[in-house]
Design a protein around this nucleic acid. Structure first.
Lengths: 339, 339
DNA sequence: AAGCGTTGTGTGCACGTTCACAGAATCTGA
DNA sequence: TCAGATTCTGTGAACGTGCACACAACGCTT
């Protein structure tokens, strides 16, 4: 029963006050859940709000509160990879859920060019958001530097070296070592790796873990590096690796997508998995259960990473100091068929 | 060279005016690119902006302008599917790119429960956004009704029946008929369909197109309906279909993910594709080129859908009336190996 | 009956911007 | 030299909310 109020001008606090016979201040107190509002006033206000169809004006509230209840979700990733990487979607989802529960909005910013970087910088200190969650930053990332300079509340997913900020991540190095150990422990002799994304901490850490696990028997020739965590780069990497060392009997792919690409090459070359070659991946994304055989991999808790980052960010926004120690989540090895 | 201004209070228009020796109004005019600002004033202002480190306050601007330069991107989808559906990611990306170019922000709202619906309703008329893009609405969707009631600028991706609003989509029916025709034209005799998402216009339209293509030889028994456009539903659907009609020699899967699931069942049952069974999908997502054999499918221009919706929405925000005719984009059949 | 705490209420100001308006300065043509 | 157009500038009002403050009403103790 929306009343016949002026349809062009939305109802304000004033209108509610008039309709309920109390003052602006009292209505405002009621809305913000403060004490000191009488029972009679309360019911009158609630009815008036319905009658005039009142909705608080976010801009006005933001202006006086210096808070927007919104958070930027910044993805620094080529557009194409954003589509392919199930981790990012999982992180986004976890963040969104956690923010929704706290009644916060999420503003998505995808950064893929210098122009985008400028935009991000502008929006970060225009007061449009209270803080930022940054996914897949690189070392020496311009976005990271902007955030450091602005001293805006921020949490990184992953731990870019040289950035002094709060972060939530996994121990890529230890996990990579664990999953590589699976290959070694099942008797593989010539174990190679398709490393990817070495411009990111996750990429270099996974390579380091691989090296850790093999120790003395590590052979640099058996590492092939590709740019992205993608299926097609997995294909290319596997081809290069096989050419260099045909007697390969174990492969650690830096991601499940890479592993899936590698698997298709192995099959095409007539090698059986896990018979001739043991193959392990990383992420435990939907790739892992779609391949035949299914992939032994590292489970990465994408949604929890997103949720954890959101929680930490809300702490910071609430006034807590940014703890630069970082939160590390578990990522156990999942044994399936491929190794 | 950020000056030693009070670090706790951001610089305002006032500070710029003082530093440059002109008035607020002149600075404001300069910022908004209006005429009537002298050259001397211009350079003084520009220098002052740098000196005091001025950034416009979005909330204050929004308040007086009654515009936020932000748009809601509403996805009505279970969280799990958001992860799996590459179309949504593509649409999101297209929208984001188009909005960025127009200097608009994108606020993501994922709707998965009644509570979420409430939130969406609140944010849509709190003035937090100037308009909305709605993806994958159902018939009789509460979100759709909210938007209709609020009369906020909005564009739907896809064309939910009974919703009278602007939309951008594809002709699911015609495309489904085309791709089904491929099965028929290559000599398949017993063609079944794994239909999915019949609570959505895209789902029912694809089924209708399938029926169109088969005409008199359409057999209701050969249609198996599953809830989601997902891999696992494809598995279930294919199993059911094979049980009911083992002599099947052609299958139209309502999406590539469904087709991939179906393919795995066919392989497990010892059927060759396209030898024993012809298989076609829908979407031309990354699934289509990851399977062996690669899928013959319908190319769906996800990014263009998102970009088109954004463009139409910006028109509406600019004052143009919402054209309820709808924009239909091309989606050609892509021939690969599976049929 | 006076003093005091608690609860409830109204008012004015501030937040930082845009916009309308009035007025100053400059330029044009007779 | 004066009228009128043109360019430029400053000022005061909004926009709709939260918050600090003053103050009214009431119960309780002394």
């Amino acid at each position: 029963m929306t009343s016949s109020a002026d349809p062009v001008r939305p109802a304000t606090l004033h209108d509610v006050a008039r309709a309920s016979g109390v003052s602006r201040g009292t209505v405002s107190r009621h809305l913000n859940g403060e004490r000191y509002v009488s029972e009679t006033a309360r019911v009158a206000i609630e009815q008036a709000i319905i009658d005039v169809g009142y909705v608080p004006n976010t801009a006005a509230r933001n202006l006086v509160r210096r808070r927007t209840q919104a958070v930027a979700f910044i993805v620094h990733e080529p557009h194409a990879l954003f589509l392919e990487d199930p981790n990012i979607a999982g992180i986004l989802l976890g963040t969104n859920t956690a923010l929704s529960d706290a009644d916060y909005q999420m503003v998505c910013l995808i950064v893929d060019s210098d122009r985008d970087t400028q935009r991000v910088a502008r929006y970060l200190n225009s007061g449009f958001v209270d803080g930022a969650i940054v996914v897949s930053a690189r070392e020496n990332d311009p976005v990271s530097r902007i955030i450091e300079k602005l001293r805006i509340p921020a949490v990184f997913v992953g731990h870019p070296r040289g950035v002094d900020a709060a972060w939530v991540g996994i121990d890529n190095r230890a996990a990579a070592a664990s999953v590589t150990a699976r290959l070694r422990d099942t008797g593989r002799q010539r174990i190679g790796m398709i490393a990817a994304a070495l411009d990111r901490d996750s990429g270099t850490d996974r390579l380091a873990g691989f090296r850790d696990a093999l120790g003395g028997s590590f052979d640099e020739r058996l590492v092939e590096s590709v740019p992205l965590y993608s299926y097609s780069d997995g294909v290319a990497g596997m081809r290069a690796l096989l050419e260099r060392e045909p007697r390969l009997d174990g492969v650690f792919a830096a991601s499940d997508a890479v592993a899936a690409g590698a698997l298709s090459v192995l099959h095409a070359e007539g090698r059986t998995v896990p018979g001739d070659v043991g193959l392990v991946g990383f992420d435990d994304s939907s790739w892992a259960t779609r391949t035949t055989p299914q992939l032994t991999t590292v489970h990465q808790p994408a949604a929890q990473l997103g949720a954890g980052a959101a929680a930490e960010l809300l702490h910071q926004i609430g006034g807590a100091p940014a703890s630069t120690e970082g939160v590390i989540l578990d990522c156990p090895v999942v044994l399936r068929e491929s190794a």
